[in-house]
Design a binder for these strands. Sequence first.
RNA 1: GCGGAAAUAGCUCAAUUGGUAGAGCAUCGGCUUCCCAAGCCGAAGGUCGCGAGUUCGAAUCUCGUUUUCCGCUCCA
Length: 525
Amino acid sequence: MQGLQIKNEMTQEEKFKAIIAHSKEYGYIFPSSDIYDGLSAVYDYGQMGVELKNNIKKYWWDSMVRLHENIVGLDSAIFMHPKTWEASGHLSAFNDPLIDNKDSKKRYRADVLLEDYLDKIEGKIEKDVNKGKKRFGENFDEDQFRATNPNVLRNKKKYDEVHIRMVDALEKNDLVALKTLIEACGIADPISGTKNWTDVRQFNLMFSTQIGSVSEDAGTIYLRPETAQGIFVNFLNVQKSGRMKLPFGIAQIGKAFRNEIVARQFIFRMREFEQMEMEFFVKPGTEMEWFKKWKAIRLAWHKALNLGEENYRFHDHDKLAHYANAATDIEFNFPFGFKELEGIHSRTDFDLSNHQKVSGKKLQYFDSITKENYIPYVIETSIGLDRMFLSILSSAYKEETLDNGEKRTLLSLPAALAPIKLAILPLVKKDGLPEIARKIRDDIKFDFNCQYDEKDSIGKRYRRQDAIGTPFCITIDHDTINDNMVTLRYRDDMSQDRIPIEKIRGIVEEKVSYKNLFKNITSTN
RNA sequence: GCGGAAAUAGCUCAAUUGGUAGAGCAUCGGCUUCCCAAGCCGAAGGUCGCGAGUUCGAAUCUCGUUUUCCGCUCCA
């Protein structure tokens, strides 16, 4: 260790920009369709990025599917039957008519504005009814009052009229009618107080396309907005063919698509992204216990990477989604602050029971111990692969000033995840050293991803490897010819060891194995 | 989507009131030193994001547009 000083003058924003530039310069991440000026919020993974991404997937997959005997994998299609999204609730929940107030610049759901308005009318009616109650005391006939009181009748008529028109407009997806109705009701923005509205626009967070080649026969299908539903619809297939017993899990890695209104912050929020999801099916009533267990397992998984324990925290949800009875996020300290990296949700039997309802197929599990049939409850762990990638990249990126004043930029990636594990460098490109180096490379190129480099001075080559995050370099020098020893150089502290050629494989293998990351992760069986 | 800022070589940035587009690093081909980048010679790389307009002439002025960053907004 040469007394390295880490430069701290950089602001978080500068650091984030530097990471983005570094990603492009060294082949980690490119803007999509770069030569056409890019496509908003879509990115491509380059020659280094794809390796790192694959290594992250393997780390996750093996820690789920191999470490736990009761978790199996799945790779379901991106296209799914349209009814899937009806059952999951995405069709209604992801499909909102939105309207903006031009003065306050606030955006609202048009149907919510109308519902709030209806609630107000309802409030008036109840107020009148309560007044009547007070006035008539015990003799009060509520039904009679509602049917005869002129105020109540007027409001009731108004309510029904607006309600019918709203439901009608929503059903027909008539955006013009929605706006007309909002104007007719005289709804004002609660913030600006004005009625200066834009047109109602449809924001569908699901991408749709046509299946079938002839347009009149074609049906609308969606690109999945989450991978989880592919697991739920395969629940019975997997459970029966795999003879799975509760509790058990199904894990899946795959692309998902969301037409976000605003997608930003590099690869943090993209329109096309990749999820690593695991649905764990449990006996109803045991879900909170498993929820707690999975929180602990998942946090341990993250911490095993040694990116700094202080960079993780739980964020429990106060407002729960319609399907959940408990939910938490594992947040990571990104260059733009703590943000969601992974979600852990107790989804109850929401998904399976809805699929059972919509499909008409029984999605139950027969418990041979209690002799009961029931729909299992589900604990979901859902992690954004691209976010995981960004968390690793941003914590690995370092700019150092060495004792001699030189600058060094390095990616201090966990060795198990680094794209290139080992660089093989002849000290000079003459005197037979390249030949020895190439032979070593040929001997171990199938054991790890290696890179051979003979261009420029040895120091320059070390820095190049630092920049792409290669944890180990071996250097072949003139002494190697006589003693069969090479120099093993470590990325993080730039220290060196002298080791025999035949031990390279064993030593590096031990250091880059992700098996030792699993040491602190408990198994579920 | 709204507001602000920006876009020139792979990267970081120059280019005087509008007058032939430059540097450093990186890359490539050689030479030299040889265990921690920036030694020498040479080469390649740009319709100045894109499209219009004004002008004898536009990287520079005007408008539009795309992309990125920041703040709102959105994110069952």
